[in-house]
Simulated assay, not measured.
Amino acid sequence: MPKFSEAIAPSQAFLYGEHAVLYGSPALAMSVDVKTRARVTEVEDRIIEIRSDRFPEGLRWRYDEEQPEENPLLPLAYGLRDLMKRYEFNKGLIVEISSDVPVNSGMASSASVSAAISAAFLSLVGESPEKYLLLDIVYEFERRIHGRASKTGPACAVLGGLVWVEWRDGNMEVSRIDSKDDLSIVISCSGLPSETKKLVSMVSKRYNEIRDVMDRIMHAISALTVEGRRAIEKRDLVRAGELMNINHGLLSAIGVSNYVLDEIVWTMRRLGAYGAKLSGAGGGGCVIGLSENPEVLAKNLSASYPSFAAKVSLEGARVIR
Rank of each mutant, 00 (worst) to 15 (best):
L76S: 01
V113T: 15
V125A: 11
G255W: 11
V203I: 06
Y274K: 07
S31D: 05
A116C: 10
S184K: 14
D215L: 12
I94N: 02
S105R: 11
R144D: 02
P129E: 04
L74W: 06
V226A: 11
S188T: 09
E295H: 13
S98L: 06
K180L: 12
A273P: 08
A273H: 08
P2Y: 14
S118F: 03
I48E: 09
A303V: 04
K277L: 05
I185E: 01
Y139N: 12
L243W: 13
S31K: 02
D64A: 11
H19G: 07
V174E: 12
L28I: 04
I117V: 15
N104E: 15
S252M: 08
I94V: 15
I210V: 15
I47G: 06
V174S: 10
V125F: 07
L122T: 10
A157L: 04
L22P: 11
L28R: 00
G241M: 05
R51V: 05
S184N: 10
G147N: 04
W266V: 03
A111S: 15
M202E: 08
N300E: 15
S179N: 13
S304P: 01
S114I: 02
R143D: 00
G255V: 05
E166A: 08
F121W: 05
E233F: 01
F55M: 02
G161H: 05
N71D: 11
A149P: 05
W266N: 10
Q67A: 14
A281F: 08
M218A: 08
V113W: 03
F121C: 10
D82M: 13
H219G: 01
R230N: 14
T267I: 05
S5E: 13
G255C: 08
W167S: 03
V174D: 12
V186I: 12
L28P: 06
L301K: 01
L261H: 03
L162V: 07
M218R: 00
I185G: 01
K131S: 10
R37E: 07
G284V: 00
M107Y: 01
P306G: 12
E18Y: 14
L80G: 10
E49Q: 14
D212L: 11
D53A: 12
N293H: 12
L251C: 09
I264Y: 03
G153H: 01
F308S: 12
D45K: 15
P129Y: 03
S175I: 00
E88V: 12
Y63W: 15
R168L: 12
E49Y: 02
K234C: 06
R216S: 14
R62D: 13
V138K: 01
I48R: 08
L314W: 09
L80H: 02
H146L: 07
A120K: 01
P129C: 07
